[in-house]
Design a protein around this nucleic acid. Structure first.
Lengths: 218, 218
DNA sequence: CAGCAGGTTTCGGTGCGCCGAAATATTGCT
DNA sequence: AGCAATATTTCGGCGCACCGAAACCTGCTG
């Protein structure tokens, strides 16, 4: 178990971790392959390596779980990603819908020292522009009770905590509608594929899929 | 000749280009291998690929020259490297002897957009902290007549233009002696392996090798 | 409870960038 | 000119991360 955490393995760890933030049950190889845009056979192989390094626990034909060591590495990568995103928005003139790809690359190449300098410049922020918690250097993550907007009952009132940054188009759409971290939302109606709501004084509706990208306070 | 310029090829291009800044004659495969810390056989192979992409001109068993296309790519990489170095020093609290390795990595991963943002923030600087000219986005490079301090005759008086950033220890050494870009230097004596000089009012001596890392105005 | 549709793994294979050893070319020296 | 030192290339091979095809499990359905 040498500290040979390649960029590829970092991506795997990050993706497994990200899954646990949105879904309670462990991720399957197929889901991982889809999110990474990689063939299932590649996942099998890579997971074998990661298991050998003690980063994931995996029983053949079963799902996938991070070990403590794996979670620690994953959190370090997530920290990098989110700090870089925050920096791009705060200092480099990026919009919150434009930072994901750049951070995706830089998270693997920024040194610890540079990351620390960024963290200090930004005043050690706790959340990134999408509301995602930024793990501390020691691996602590701020957490707060939440519900997915797609799961919230009618009449639920909450503040937007975070919005998934996976789809820039969704971010632009939500921005246009005044939905961003910190905003109050009231769910007015829940249908099978639509959630109707009131945000920033404006009424509107979201598809269930879009609503699943949003955390609101419980 | 697809635009498949990998990080490895970028390093080769940059190194070949850097050589031409310090030496008039074209670089040999051996020298390139040494500077890159790579086996000679790797250079042969990589050069073949680069020649196939029209980036270098190479006759078997002969030296190595950049084509116009190769120079263009090399300048783009050099621009990245030097802008990043400048940024690290200007904004992120790095010393001029500490930026090389970080820039070495980031030059391959920073997007054009982010680079442009950095350039703008810094006010489109013309030289980096070591005095190296930063090529413009269109590939123009500022130049000024110079002599290597190792080649300067006794009694020569000039201003330090640039100092090679290859060896951090040399940079610290020079900094300690007050030798940095912009400083006036008078060569007081030239021996075979030593150059004696006066800089910032202080007398001192440098090995020929160290002096070969310094450009002064002609 | 047999069969089938899925997901998962195995297997052979690819491109990239690297290596060392061996073959070959060039150069400099006597 | 001849030879030895040195540079360059060729060759087989390696590790990484990926692929597709085929074999193999598992769980669900009929």
């Amino acid at each position: 178990m040498p500290p040979t955490t390649s960029p590829a393995i970092e991506d795997y760890l990050k993706t497994v971790y990200a899954h646990t933030e949105w879904q309670p049950d462990p991720i399957t190889p197929k889901a991982l392959a889809d999110k990474l845009g990689v063939a299932p056979s590649s996942v099998t192989e890579m997971v074998k390596k990661m298991a050998a390094q003690g980063l994931v626990a995996h029983v053949p034909y079963g799902p996938l779980r991070l070990t403590d060591a794996g979670r620690e590495r994953a959190l370090a990568v997530v920290r990098r990603h989110r700090l870089i995103e925050t920096w791009l928005v705060a200092e480099m003139g990026y919009g919150w819908d434009e930072v994901h790809d750049e951070a995706e690359v830089l998270e693997h190449t920024v040194s610890d020292r540079l990351l620390e300098a960024i963290d200090v410049r930004l005043g050690r922020p706790a959340r990134d522009p999408h509301g995602d918690a930024i793990p501390s250097a020691s691996g602590d993550v701020a957490s707060e009770p939440f519900v997915l907007l797609s799961e919230a009952p009618a009449a639920h009132v909450g503040r937007v905590i975070r919005i998934s940054d996976r789809d820039p188009a969704v971010l632009r759409e939500l921005e246009r509608r005044g939905i961003r971290p910190g905003v109050e939302i009231e769910v007015t109606d829940v249908e099978s594929e639509r959630v109707t709501l009131q945000a920033s004084g404006e009424a509107g509706a979201l598809t269930r899929e879009t609503a699943a990208a949003i955390w609101v306070t419980a």
